[in-house]
Write a protein that binds this DNA or RNA. Structure first.
Lengths: 202, 202
DNA sequence: AATCAATCTTGACAGTGTCAAAATTGATTA
DNA sequence: TAATCAATTTTGACACTGTCAAGATTGATT
């Protein structure tokens, strides 16, 4: 998280830009973030940010990167704190936390997994690295859970990891994008999803 | 699909705008569609489109609406053509077709279920109507399938409809947005998803 | 033939991302 | 200490964007 190059004059322009940009996105979405508005907010000229981020895409990638870091922290806390929970319940806890994160940081989540960066733009190498790592962790956990009998063993763990994550992601997006609107339902749908995903033990 | 008002001078500006807009979106995404470029392509002045669509949002809604209509047609064809298939296999067929549609019309799909319209913009009444109808059909089918034993009966059909659709949607989006990149995997992941969703009959 | 309203165009305004060139300034070297 | 250098910031410019207001065109209606 420490930067290799500290800006000369302003002192910590890069950091200030990042936090201000995150704020702008938090209230108003990515559309609310323009380089010029951002520069204005921080108190520099329109093109000053271009000395710290090659272009808008790189700025967005940097924000998304922070998001991954943050999400990783939150989610990692579960497995270390709730060690007494049985595997299946820990999984449910994870899912609910994941969805809550997506819900509370909806605009960041949008950036992290949205087309703005991954399709329309170009993901930074470091962004690719951290996101790939996040999925790797997920895959490893799924592998363990499958060995423990939480998931069926008739599919390779990679496929289960992919389709289960897609299920989570889809739910997040539908709420996030305003297609599903009733926020009260989110927990119940999430729990239904979990129960469908895990092995039936009846 | 027939319009109530035919434009005076141009003859069928509205239709031409719609199809040209759909083309622009098809190659280059929503970002590639600007009112001005569109007007230029059709051969009218920059503001001519505003006499047929209140603003860009309404144009996007109209395109999305066509998408829903199209998707409905494609998907409806399955249940009428393959009447001999057992319910579970018909469901798989549906899922694969749905995903294929999302894949082949990725930009339209993006519009249909994306934040551009539902969160950032404002969905038209007619768009809300047709999309709601699509989900209603899905829900009704899920209800039938549950009664037939394809799905577990320990959850209300609404919840199953919501979470299963979310699973599909998530898969579509991950490929659509360039997060999942290996297109060869899509069918296999889809089949895994289906097998996870439906009731185990071992 | 005159009127009207739907349609289309021209002009304008406030935004946007980003490039090129000039200005500032802290640190480094002579 | 003074001169040089390179990192940083600014100003100016360009080509875009959506959309509003006002005027021009024109088919249909009276």
């Amino acid at each position: 998280m420490t930067e290799t190059k500290k800006p000369y004059h302003h002192g910590d322009l890069r950091e200030k830009l990042l936090s201000a940009a995150t704020n702008l996105i938090a209230d108003g979405g990515v559309d609310n973030l323009s380089i010029r508005k951002l520069a204005d907010k921080v108190g520099v000229s329109r093109t000053a940010p271009y000395h710290h981020f090659k272009d808008k895409n790189e700025l967005l990638c940097a924000i998304a990167e922070q998001g991954f870091y943050q999400q990783d922290q939150i989610v990692r806390a579960i497995s270390t704190q709730k060690t007494d929970l049985p595997a299946a319940e820990l999984f449910e806890e994870y899912v609910l936390t994941y969805i809550r994160f997506a819900n509370e940081n909806s605009e960041t989540y949008d950036l992290m997994y949205g087309r703005d960066i991954w399709k329309a733009g170009q993901p930074t190498e470091s962004l690719k690295a951290i996101s790939k790592n996040c999925f790797k962790l997920w895959l490893e956990w799924i592998t363990v859970l499958q060995a423990e009998g939480v998931f069926e063993s008739n599919h390779p763990p990679l496929r289960i990891a992919q389709s289960s994550w897609a299920a989570l992601h889809g739910l997040c997006r539908l709420f996030n994008d305003g297609v599903y609107i009733n926020q009260d339902d989110v927990d119940e749908i999430a729990k239904t999803t979990v129960e469908i995903l895990i092995k039936k033990t009846s």
